[in-house]
Computed example of a mutant assay.
Amino acid sequence: MLDDQDDQDRPVPTAVVRERRGGQRHSIVLLIGKVCRGDHETVCLVHNISAFGLMARFTTAPVVGERLRIEVRGLPLVAGTVRWVKGVKAGFEFDEPQDVDRVFTLKQDDGRTARSPRFPIAALARLRFEGAPFTAALIDISAGGAKMMSDTPVTTGLTGQIMLPDMETPVYGTVCWTRDDSFGVRFVASLSLTTLSQVLGC
Protein backbone atom coordinates (compact mmCIF):
# COMPACT_ATOMS: atom_id res chain seq x y z
CA MET A 1 0.00 0.00 0.00
CA LEU A 2 1.07 3.62 -0.41
CA ASP A 3 2.51 5.28 2.67
CA ASP A 4 1.36 8.77 1.71
CA GLN A 5 -1.22 10.41 -0.51
CA ASP A 6 0.63 13.57 -1.53
CA ASP A 7 -0.06 13.06 -5.22
CA GLN A 8 -3.74 12.15 -4.96
CA ASP A 9 -6.03 14.04 -7.34
CA ARG A 10 -3.09 15.94 -8.86
CA PRO A 11 -2.33 15.83 -12.57
CA VAL A 12 0.93 14.12 -13.47
CA PRO A 13 3.18 16.72 -15.17
CA THR A 14 6.24 16.08 -17.29
CA ALA A 15 9.78 17.13 -16.39
CA VAL A 16 10.17 20.27 -14.32
CA VAL A 17 13.88 20.41 -13.33
CA ARG A 18 17.19 19.04 -14.59
CA GLU A 19 20.15 18.72 -12.23
CA ARG A 20 23.55 17.03 -11.94
CA ARG A 21 24.72 14.60 -9.27
CA GLY A 22 28.18 13.14 -9.43
CA GLY A 23 28.61 14.33 -13.00
CA GLN A 24 25.44 12.56 -14.14
CA ARG A 25 22.43 14.52 -15.37
CA HIS A 26 19.21 13.69 -13.54
CA SER A 27 15.80 14.94 -14.58
CA ILE A 28 13.21 15.45 -11.86
CA VAL A 29 9.83 14.26 -13.11
CA LEU A 30 6.44 13.03 -11.99
CA LEU A 31 5.53 10.35 -14.50
CA ILE A 32 3.50 7.17 -14.18
CA GLY A 33 5.51 4.03 -14.95
CA LYS A 34 4.59 0.40 -15.54
CA VAL A 35 6.36 -2.14 -13.31
CA CYS A 36 6.60 -5.77 -14.46
CA ARG A 37 7.36 -8.36 -11.79
CA GLY A 38 7.34 -11.58 -13.76
CA ASP A 39 3.86 -11.77 -15.28
CA HIS A 40 2.40 -9.28 -12.78
CA GLU A 41 2.01 -5.60 -13.70
CA THR A 42 1.73 -2.73 -11.24
CA VAL A 43 2.26 1.03 -11.35
CA CYS A 44 4.87 3.38 -9.94
CA LEU A 45 5.46 7.14 -9.88
CA VAL A 46 8.89 8.07 -11.26
CA HIS A 47 10.42 11.01 -9.36
CA ASN A 48 13.74 11.34 -11.20
CA ILE A 49 15.51 9.62 -14.07
CA SER A 50 18.93 9.54 -15.73
CA ALA A 51 20.52 7.47 -18.47
CA PHE A 52 21.52 4.90 -15.86
CA GLY A 53 18.43 4.53 -13.70
CA LEU A 54 15.53 6.09 -11.87
CA MET A 55 13.97 6.65 -8.48
CA ALA A 56 10.28 5.86 -8.07
CA ARG A 57 7.52 5.40 -5.53
CA PHE A 58 5.94 1.97 -5.74
CA THR A 59 2.51 0.70 -4.67
CA THR A 60 4.28 -2.24 -3.01
CA ALA A 61 7.87 -1.82 -1.87
CA PRO A 62 10.42 -3.88 -3.83
CA VAL A 63 13.49 -5.43 -2.21
CA VAL A 64 17.15 -4.70 -2.80
CA GLY A 65 18.49 -6.92 -5.56
CA GLU A 66 15.06 -7.60 -7.06
CA ARG A 67 14.95 -7.81 -10.85
CA LEU A 68 12.24 -5.70 -12.46
CA ARG A 69 11.27 -4.26 -15.82
CA ILE A 70 9.94 -0.70 -15.91
CA GLU A 71 8.32 1.23 -18.76
CA VAL A 72 8.13 5.03 -18.81
CA ARG A 73 6.72 7.25 -21.56
CA GLY A 74 9.22 7.43 -24.42
CA LEU A 75 11.25 4.39 -23.30
CA PRO A 76 10.74 0.68 -23.95
CA LEU A 77 10.28 -1.83 -21.14
CA VAL A 78 13.73 -1.59 -19.49
CA ALA A 79 15.22 -4.36 -17.36
CA GLY A 80 17.26 -3.58 -14.28
CA THR A 81 17.93 -4.13 -10.58
CA VAL A 82 16.66 -2.47 -7.40
CA ARG A 83 19.71 -0.95 -5.67
CA TRP A 84 18.15 0.68 -2.58
CA VAL A 85 14.78 0.86 -0.83
CA LYS A 86 13.39 3.40 1.64
CA GLY A 87 9.74 2.79 2.51
CA VAL A 88 7.94 2.48 -0.81
CA LYS A 89 10.57 4.51 -2.66
CA ALA A 90 13.42 2.73 -4.39
CA GLY A 91 16.36 3.28 -6.71
CA PHE A 92 16.38 1.22 -9.90
CA GLU A 93 19.51 0.75 -12.06
CA PHE A 94 19.07 0.02 -15.77
CA ASP A 95 20.96 -2.93 -17.26
CA GLU A 96 21.96 -0.67 -20.15
CA PRO A 97 22.07 3.15 -20.46
CA GLN A 98 18.92 4.70 -21.94
CA ASP A 99 18.32 7.77 -24.09
CA VAL A 100 16.23 9.67 -21.52
CA ASP A 101 15.78 12.63 -23.87
CA ARG A 102 13.05 10.45 -25.40
CA VAL A 103 11.10 10.77 -22.14
CA PHE A 104 10.71 14.50 -22.76
CA THR A 105 10.06 14.31 -26.51
CA LEU A 106 6.31 14.39 -27.06
CA LYS A 107 6.60 13.30 -30.70
CA GLN A 108 8.19 9.94 -31.55
CA ASP A 109 10.41 9.35 -34.60
CA ASP A 110 7.38 8.14 -36.56
CA GLY A 111 5.50 11.36 -35.79
CA ARG A 112 3.13 9.79 -33.28
CA THR A 113 2.53 11.33 -29.87
CA ALA A 114 4.44 9.57 -27.08
CA ARG A 115 2.01 7.81 -24.74
CA SER A 116 2.08 6.87 -21.09
CA PRO A 117 2.35 3.13 -20.40
CA ARG A 118 -0.95 1.31 -20.94
CA PHE A 119 -2.37 -1.38 -18.68
CA PRO A 120 -4.80 -4.03 -19.94
CA ILE A 121 -7.97 -4.16 -17.85
CA ALA A 122 -11.23 -6.10 -17.96
CA ALA A 123 -13.82 -3.95 -16.18
CA LEU A 124 -16.84 -1.75 -16.82
CA ALA A 125 -17.06 2.03 -16.75
CA ARG A 126 -20.20 4.17 -16.65
CA LEU A 127 -20.22 7.16 -18.99
CA ARG A 128 -22.42 10.17 -19.57
CA PHE A 129 -21.55 12.26 -22.62
CA GLU A 130 -24.95 13.35 -23.91
CA GLY A 131 -28.38 12.16 -22.86
CA ALA A 132 -28.77 8.96 -20.82
CA PRO A 133 -25.74 7.29 -19.19
CA PHE A 134 -24.39 4.10 -20.71
CA THR A 135 -21.87 1.37 -19.86
CA ALA A 136 -18.64 0.61 -21.71
CA ALA A 137 -16.06 -2.14 -21.36
CA LEU A 138 -12.57 -0.96 -20.48
CA ILE A 139 -9.91 -2.57 -22.68
CA ASP A 140 -6.84 -0.72 -21.46
CA ILE A 141 -6.07 2.37 -19.41
CA SER A 142 -3.20 4.76 -18.78
CA ALA A 143 -2.74 7.90 -16.70
CA GLY A 144 -3.88 9.94 -19.68
CA GLY A 145 -6.78 7.99 -21.16
CA ALA A 146 -8.47 4.70 -21.92
CA LYS A 147 -9.63 2.44 -24.74
CA MET A 148 -13.24 1.27 -24.45
CA MET A 149 -15.90 -0.72 -26.28
CA SER A 150 -19.66 -0.17 -26.25
CA ASP A 151 -22.78 -0.85 -28.32
CA THR A 152 -23.77 2.78 -27.71
CA PRO A 153 -22.43 4.92 -30.58
CA VAL A 154 -20.20 7.89 -29.75
CA THR A 155 -18.56 10.52 -31.93
CA THR A 156 -15.16 12.18 -31.80
CA GLY A 157 -15.11 15.36 -29.73
CA LEU A 158 -17.78 14.39 -27.19
CA THR A 159 -16.83 15.38 -23.63
CA GLY A 160 -18.40 14.08 -20.45
CA GLN A 161 -18.18 12.15 -17.21
CA ILE A 162 -16.57 8.73 -16.76
CA MET A 163 -17.08 6.68 -13.62
CA LEU A 164 -14.13 4.27 -13.43
CA PRO A 165 -14.36 1.00 -11.45
CA ASP A 166 -13.93 1.31 -7.66
CA MET A 167 -14.04 5.12 -7.84
CA GLU A 168 -16.59 7.27 -6.00
CA THR A 169 -16.17 10.41 -8.11
CA PRO A 170 -16.13 10.67 -11.91
CA VAL A 171 -13.29 11.86 -14.12
CA TYR A 172 -13.83 13.92 -17.23
CA GLY A 173 -12.67 13.02 -20.71
CA THR A 174 -13.06 13.61 -24.43
CA VAL A 175 -13.58 11.02 -27.16
CA CYS A 176 -10.46 11.36 -29.33
CA TRP A 177 -11.04 8.53 -31.85
CA THR A 178 -13.63 5.92 -32.82
CA ARG A 179 -13.38 2.65 -34.74
CA ASP A 180 -16.40 0.34 -35.13
CA ASP A 181 -17.58 -0.24 -31.53
CA SER A 182 -14.24 0.82 -29.99
CA PHE A 183 -13.25 4.34 -29.00
CA GLY A 184 -10.53 6.18 -27.14
CA VAL A 185 -11.01 8.71 -24.35
CA ARG A 186 -8.43 11.29 -23.31
CA PHE A 187 -8.79 12.36 -19.68
CA VAL A 188 -8.98 16.10 -19.01
CA ALA A 189 -6.54 15.67 -16.08
CA SER A 190 -4.07 12.79 -15.81
CA LEU A 191 -4.85 10.14 -13.20
CA SER A 192 -2.69 10.17 -10.08
CA LEU A 193 -0.70 7.12 -8.96
CA THR A 194 -3.25 6.52 -6.19
CA THR A 195 -6.24 6.67 -8.54
CA LEU A 196 -4.71 4.51 -11.27
CA SER A 197 -3.50 1.88 -8.82
CA GLN A 198 -6.97 1.77 -7.23
CA VAL A 199 -8.64 1.29 -10.62
CA LEU A 200 -6.19 -1.49 -11.48
CA GLY A 201 -6.61 -3.12 -8.08
CA CYS A 202 -2.93 -2.90 -7.15
Score class of each variant (00 low, 15 high):
residue 21 R to S: 15
residue 21 R to F: 15
residue 21 R to G: 03
residue 27 S to P: 02
residue 29 V to N: 03
residue 31 L to H: 05
residue 34 K to E: 11
residue 36 C to D: 14
residue 39 D to V: 12
residue 39 D to K: 09
residue 39 D to R: 14
residue 43 V to S: 10
residue 43 V to N: 05
residue 45 L to A: 07
residue 46 V to A: 10
residue 52 F to Q: 11
residue 54 L to Y: 01
residue 55 M to R: 15
residue 57 R to A: 12
residue 57 R to E: 13
residue 58 F to Y: 14
residue 60 T to R: 12
residue 61 A to K: 09
residue 63 V to A: 09
residue 63 V to L: 07
residue 63 V to H: 14
residue 63 V to G: 06
residue 64 V to R: 13
residue 66 E to D: 11
residue 70 I to A: 04
residue 71 E to M: 11
residue 72 V to H: 07
residue 74 G to F: 04
residue 75 L to E: 09
residue 76 P to K: 10
residue 76 P to W: 03
residue 79 A to E: 15
residue 79 A to W: 04
residue 79 A to N: 13
residue 80 G to N: 02
residue 84 W to T: 12
residue 85 V to M: 07
residue 90 A to C: 12
residue 90 A to W: 05
residue 94 F to E: 12
residue 95 D to M: 08
residue 98 Q to I: 10
residue 102 R to S: 14
residue 103 V to K: 12
residue 107 K to G: 02
residue 107 K to Q: 15
residue 108 Q to L: 15
residue 111 G to N: 05
residue 112 R to Y: 06
residue 114 A to N: 11
residue 116 S to E: 10
residue 116 S to Y: 03
residue 117 P to A: 04
residue 118 R to D: 04
residue 119 F to H: 08
residue 120 P to M: 08
residue 121 I to Q: 03
residue 126 R to E: 07
residue 126 R to D: 07
residue 126 R to A: 09
residue 126 R to Y: 07
residue 127 L to T: 02
residue 127 L to I: 10
residue 128 R to Q: 04
residue 128 R to I: 00
residue 128 R to T: 10
residue 131 G to T: 13
residue 131 G to H: 11
residue 132 A to Q: 06
residue 133 P to V: 00
residue 136 A to H: 00
residue 138 L to C: 04
residue 139 I to M: 07
residue 140 D to S: 01
residue 143 A to F: 06
residue 146 A to I: 10
residue 147 K to S: 11
residue 150 S to E: 00
residue 152 T to W: 07
residue 153 P to L: 08
residue 153 P to H: 08
residue 153 P to Y: 09
residue 158 L to F: 06
residue 161 Q to I: 00
residue 163 M to C: 05
residue 163 M to H: 12
residue 164 L to E: 03
residue 165 P to M: 08
